[in-house]
Simulated assay, not measured.
Amino acid sequence: MPSKKILIILSDADSFPLKKTSGQDAGKTVAQPSGFFLMELAKPLQKLLDAGHEITFASPKGQEPVPDPTSESLAAFAGNFYERRRENELLERMKRENGFNRPRTLQSISDEELPSFAGVFIPGGHAPLRDLGDDKEVGRVLRFFHQENKPTAAICHGPYALLSTKQAGDGSFVYKGYKITSWSDAEEKVMETVLGGEVKKVESALRNEGAEMVEGAAEKIGQTTLHRELLTGGNPMAADELGNRFVRMISV
Rank of each mutant, 00 (worst) to 15 (best):
K5C: 02
K5G: 00
I6T: 00
L7D: 05
I8F: 06
I8Y: 01
I8S: 01
I9R: 06
S11N: 04
P17V: 11
K20W: 01
T21C: 10
S22N: 08
G23T: 04
G27Y: 02
A31V: 07
S34N: 01
G35E: 03
G35Q: 03
F36M: 03
L38P: 04
E40C: 09
E40I: 06
E40Y: 12
P44L: 02
Q46A: 14
L48K: 10
D50G: 09
F57V: 00
P60T: 09
K61H: 14
E64M: 14
P65V: 04
S71P: 05
S73D: 04
A76M: 13
F77I: 06
E92A: 13
E92H: 05
N98C: 04
F100K: 02
N101P: 08
R102C: 06
R102F: 02
P103V: 07
P103I: 10
S108T: 05
S110P: 05
S110F: 06
D111N: 15
F117Q: 07
F117H: 11
F117M: 10
V120N: 11
V120F: 03
H126W: 02
A127W: 05
A127D: 02
R140T: 05
V141S: 06
V141F: 05
Q147D: 15
K150N: 07
K150I: 02
A153Q: 09
C156L: 02
C156P: 07
C156N: 04
G158N: 05
Y160P: 09
A161W: 11
L163Q: 09
K166W: 13
G169N: 13
S172V: 13
V174D: 12
K179I: 14
T181M: 14
D185C: 11
V190K: 15
V190L: 15
G196D: 09
E198F: 06
V199Q: 15
K201W: 01
K201T: 11
V202C: 00
R207S: 10
R207L: 01
E212S: 07
V214L: 12
A218E: 15
I221R: 15
I221P: 10
I221Q: 14
Q223F: 13
T225F: 01
T225D: 04
L226Q: 14
H227D: 15
L230E: 07
G233Q: 13
G234A: 14
A239R: 08
E241C: 11
V247C: 04
M249S: 00
I250P: 03
S251H: 12
